[in-house]
């Protein structure tokens, strides 16, 4: 009979130890957590805290327990609304609040909270965990500043590009009724459009009948650019002017033929000199070279 009593006692002692150990283990985890953890009663009072809460508020544990949860925030009403929502819907995630430390500085946090129940299944309170996002917010602010600076740089760059565009497409009047457009650099859709605008306006302003467009200085001419040039020539024709395209290198001519662009409607001449001779012919100009005059003037 004494053996049975002993074994029952030791069994009870073992179970009690297990329960104690389980409890200690759980508690040590909560205390070890870097995130402030609180439990809130249905009346809005703090019922339990971990060490992180003491640190983030600067208030002693004994003073925290039993106080109003909303007392420790810059927006108490918002805090109250938060835990009330948890009681109502069961949980809340990423709820932003600002904790005020005893010494005055603030900490931006996001709250994850849910209800917890007793053994009978009745809601016992809200368990809330806060995540410190102060560093995150600072990074966000810095990023915004960098973005603004970059935007400024982009604007400046665009202004510079526009200035370059205006410089590099001059429209020159060589003779009455004859315009020359020397194009240098990259001819993209935007530039081609600008070129066409300038040309058409110049035809009207100078009453030009022929425009020689020289593309010796254009790096690459693909089918898109070729079509732009075709459109430019057609628009000029609607205004009574002829476009002569000059400066197609053998490579460019080759690539256009292989792409299959029909430049048949466009007048093309190998180089600028040839283009001007053709333009003179169309306009009825005759250039006379007086050799003797030239020799005398040289002295």
């Amino acid at each position: 009979m004494p053996e049975k009593k002993n074994s029952r006692n030791s069994k009870v002692k073992r179970t009690a130890t297990d329960i104690q150990e389980a409890g200690d283990y759980a508690r040590s985890l909560l205390e070890a957590s870097l995130d402030p953890l609180v439990t809130i009663s249905p009346e809005g009072k703090v019922t339990d805290v971990n060490e992180a809460v003491v640190k983030v508020t600067g208030i002693l544990r004994k003073d925290l327990i039993g106080s109003d949860f909303s007392d420790y925030f810059t927006e108490p009403d918002k805090a109250r609304e938060g835990y009330q929502r948890v009681f109502a819907t069961g949980f809340v995630t990423d709820y932003p609040l600002t904790i005020r430390h005893k010494d005055g500085h603030v900490i931006e946090v996001l709250y994850n909270a849910s209800v917890y129940r007793d053994v009978k299944g009745k809601v016992a309170g809200v368990f809330a965990a806060a995540r410190d996002i102060t560093a995150q917010k600072k990074t966000e602010a810095e990023l915004a500043k960098t973005n603004a600076a970059l935007q400024g740089q982009i604007e400046e760059r665009r202004r510079a590009e526009r200035a370059i565009l205006e410089l590099s497409t001059p429209v020159l009047q060589l003779r009455e009724g004859l315009l020359i457009l020397p194009i240098i650099g990259i001819l993209d859709s935007q530039r081609a459009r600008q070129l066409t605008e300038q040309l058409l306006n110049s035809i009207r302003d100078n009453r030009a009948k022929v425009a020689v467009v020289d593309i010796t200085g254009v790096a690459a001419v693909d089918s898109k650019v070729a079509n732009h040039l075709l459109q430019t020539a057609e628009a000029a024709r609607l205004m009574g002017a002829i476009v002569i395209l000059t400066g197609l290198s053998p490579e460019v001519a080759q690539s256009l033929v292989s792409i299959g662009v029909d430049l048949g409607r466009l007048i093309t001449v190998g180089d600028l000199q040839g283009g001007i001779i053709e333009a003179d012919r169309l306009l009825g100009f005759k250039v006379v070279h007086n050799q003797d005059d030239f020799t005398t003037r040289r002295v």
């Binding site: 058409l200 306006n201 035809i203 009207r204 430019t232 057609e234 628009a235 205004m239 009574g240 002017a241």
Partner: peptide, 30 residues
């Protein structure tokens, strides 16, 4: 046809309206 303005000429070629077969000039004088 005379007097097609720069903006109209530009819009026309973009839409593919080319008036092929019709003579054009800048203005009444021309």
């Amino acid at each position: 046809i005379v007097g097609i303005q720069p903006e109209v000429a530009f819009a026309m070629v973009q839409l593919g309206l080319s008036l092929t077969g019709v003579s054009t000039a800048l203005d009444l004088e021309d």
